[in-house]
Nucleic acid binder design. Sequence first.
DNA 1: CGACGCCTTGAACGATGTCAACGTGCGTGG
DNA 2: CCACGCACGTTGACATCGTTCAAGGCGTCG
Lengths: 241, 241
Amino acid sequence: MDIQRKDVHNSDTPALCRACESRHRGVCGVLNGEQLLRLSKHSTRRTLEPGTELSGESTKTTSYSNIISGVVKLSKMMADGRQQIVGLQFAPDFLGRPFRTENSVSAEAATEVQVCSFSKNLIERMISETPELERKLLDQTLNELDEARDWMLTLGRKTAGEKVASFLLLIATHAFPDNEGDSIEFDLPMSRVDIADFLGLTMETVSRQLTKLRKQDIIRIVNNRHVTVPDISRLSEWAGY
Amino acid sequence: MDIQRKDVHNSDTPALCRACESRHRGVCGVLNGEQLLRLSKHSTRRTLEPGTELSGESTKTTSYSNIISGVVKLSKMMADGRQQIVGLQFAPDFLGRPFRTENSVSAEAATEVQVCSFSKNLIERMISETPELERKLLDQTLNELDEARDWMLTLGRKTAGEKVASFLLLIATHAFPDNEGDSIEFDLPMSRVDIADFLGLTMETVSRQLTKLRKQDIIRIVNNRHVTVPDISRLSEWAGY
DNA sequence: CGACGCCTTGAACGATGTCAACGTGCGTGG
DNA sequence: CCACGCACGTTGACATCGTTCAAGGCGTCG
């Protein structure tokens, strides 16, 4: 999956980048020390509160970001207010569409989010100079396309129960990818309304399906946001896989 | 939108490529005469009947293709047979995921389709040697991602009537992009069942919504496959735009 | 002519949406 | 500390939209 995975911890690495996950699994992993330094000189690190808008639908792109931590939701809205979340992005995803001036979705922090942002011009110059970087971006874009198409199947053909189970599974695997055992425990990164907007349902239906899953002992709901899954494979069956 | 658009009609251009639309608007547009010649020597042109499978879900990729004419549908299927079409591709789209070995969707000819196919190895070597080609592929992949996300909004949040109108609009704009007037007339590239699988509906619902549009005089249905739209903007309103 | 594929139409059913009431946790101000 | 309001989530009753199942129409090909 990863095109290249250098683990160079040499002294060239800028201080800002040393502890950053993008340095390894993200786009920055294909840059050499000199490039990283150049990029880091023009990058700023910010922490965003939940609900902060990073960029709006059909606005101009001015900068790109790497997600250091947290979850960003990408959404589209219709004229009458109906909304659909069309993707979630996790660390160390790259946020923004290189060489496009217009955004086609709006990006908003779902949880508290840390990002590392750079100017559009600089990153585009570096992409043009660095084939590995361009390859890496193509790779991530293909991944996003795969995920979008997977979700189209979920939106178009799954029942409400299967949709909710699919969502839980998505969060379990993406936000906590290293968990390998049968059971798993995690915090939902978003509200019931957001989940509904992601699944093409109403908040009420999401709520009902969650209690149904709870009553079947497929999940346990600790704190509205905190969920335990005793047996992932049983959840997986419910999701239609 | 297009990264580069050369219109070189020099004598280097291989005979096979001279009349091909990909030569201008497609990926081949960024290749020079020598490269085109090399590629054309290892490419084969085929005509496929409707229903022919080009590649299966979760099979290995062995070759890539350009679509010369016709419509290809990309779909995913669940274990119990539920199906969702996750994208349509038109000429001069590039078909296949560079540098991926696994397919994530199945590709099938919706109409009669002409393709120009090349071996995976050759095209990947050319991509690596030609930054413009890689850029062009990134560009197309971003376009597909945009379309996938647009369709997620349709699948998740639109009513059956809006979905059918959106579909008609999609075909009108993609299969016949040059039509600029108020009215438009075209053949649907697929059956009612396929349309239903694209919209996340049943065949019956698609049929009912089509007759509803017909009774409102928003469309006229000539021959089950052949449709006339007297006023595109009225259709557009019905689609929720 | 009959059989078949594809589409349309009708009637009944069921899943999800809508609307409204109620519960729960949390911060604020008395 | 309690009382209150507020945001968020749950639950219930009912309405609605889309599905399901079944019948029938229309064009094509033997």
